[in-house]
């Protein structure tokens, strides 16, 4: 029982990381109908920005956090202008390829500027964790779970209960009709890229104290987050969260009770099963062809 509780906490913790990155996937998908494969790199860039401002320049943690998120907003805007906007009238395939190219470009740019050394980033709390009965609760994972829950609530409210959120949804569903109704489509898409870069950045900064800061940190998480998005249902915020948490728990329990080396295999087995039997995911619309 103790073992199961410990695994459950860890599974939810790591699942929340996937869910946070998956939120970024969902946002951009809802606005543009394409999958942004550079979403993981947003997390990596933000973590390195924190290293620069918090560790190297020794700015206060909160200030470094805000500046890093500001940098991510700028990156999101540039990303939209350079990667999406020139291809906005094409089908989704060239845009997806463009995001893959951008992902490689961003990773190699950070590599060229910073170098390959992984970095250590301290957590938000002095205490790394504490025991509740037999279960060790990592403070950073607790923070990740809390922030994920808050962002889900915020995002749900934003899309369902604000005019801007509805405009973004309208843009996603039919750009021409949205334009006819006076919605500034290009501005809506710009806002989406900025917001998703910031969300991805928050995920990267939160996860950095647990997984360290390295060039490859984003791509590893993004792959799982992408699987989580498929499982939950593309375009659905709740689905991405459920998918992320489910993936984290399934792979943790699968590793503990069946086989550790096949841990990643469980995640992708679930993905394949969903693609075959329920390609629209738990909550989402049918987009199997985009996987």
């Amino acid at each position: 029982m103790d073992l199961a509780l410990q695994l459950l906490f860890t599974g939810i913790g790591i699942g929340s990381v996937y869910a946070l990155v998956a939120l970024g996937f969902v946002l951009i998908f809802r606005a543009t109908n394409v999958v942004n494969f550079a979403q993981g790199e947003f997390s990596m860039v933000a973590a390195f920005l924190m290293i620069v401002f918090s560790v190297k320049l020794e700015l206060p943690y909160w200030l470094a956090f805000l500046i890093s998120l500001g940098g991510m907003a700028l990156l999101g805007a540039l990303f939209n202008l350079a990667v999406y906007y020139p291809l906005r009238h094409r089908t989704y395939l060239p845009v997806i390829i463009s995001t893959i190219g951008a992902s490689i470009f961003i990773a190699n740019t950070v590599l060229a500027i910073h170098g390959p050394e992984p970095e250590v980033m301290s957590g938000w709390f002095e205490t790394p964790g504490f025991l509740v009965g037999p279960v060790y609760l990592d403070s950073q994972y607790l923070l990740i779970i809390a922030v994920t829950a808050a962002l889900v609530a915020l995002q749900y409210w934003f899309f369902e209960h604000t005019l801007l959120g509805k405009k973004l949804q309208a843009t996603s569903q039919d750009k021409e009709m949205a334009a006819l109704l006076g919605i500034p489509v290009a501005a809506m898409i710009m806002i989406t890229f900025v917001y998703s870069a910031v969300i991805g950045g928050i995920a990267g900064i939160l996860v950095a104290p647990v997984l360290f800061v390295s060039i490859s940190m984003g791509s590893t998480i993004a792959l799982k987050a992408f699987a989580a998005t498929i499982i939950g249902g593309f375009g659905d915020v709740t689905g991405a969260i459920i998918g992320g948490l489910a993936l984290g728990v399934i792979e943790t329990f699968g590793a503990a009770y069946i086989s550790v080396p096949y841990k990643d295999g469980f995640a992708f087995l679930v993905l394949v099963l969903f693609l075959v039997f329920r390609p629209q995911g738990i909550f989402g619309e049918r987009v199997a062809e985009k996987a």
Binding site: L3, Q6, T10, T220, I221, A255, V260, P261, K263, D264
Partner: peptide, 17 residues
């Protein structure tokens, strides 16, 4: 004897084993 796949994000199951 406990193997693991490279580039894992979490080792909780390994440590518990």
């Amino acid at each position: 004897d406990q193997g693991y796949a490279n580039q894992s994000q979490d080792f909780t199951p390994v440590v518990l084993a």
